[in-house]
Amino acid sequence: MNKINELFNKEISVINMGLESFYTDLKKQDVKAIHVDWRPPAGGNKKMASLLSRLK
């Protein structure tokens, strides 16, 4: 069975990145969800972000 059909048989558990209202909407419906306190990598400095990603 592919993973999409597997998902159809599981409880949805969401990671939300970005608009917090999408997360609060899920919480209101008692859907399992976690909101990431996301920030632009390296303070939005693209060059620094690309250097950092190479460290991982």
Binding site: I12, S13, V14, I15, N16, G18, F22, I34
Partner: peptide
């Protein structure tokens, strides 16, 4: 057990 990521960045 997370299985879906909603991204609006």
């Amino acid at each position: 057990d997370s299985n879906v990521v909603v991204i609006s960045l």
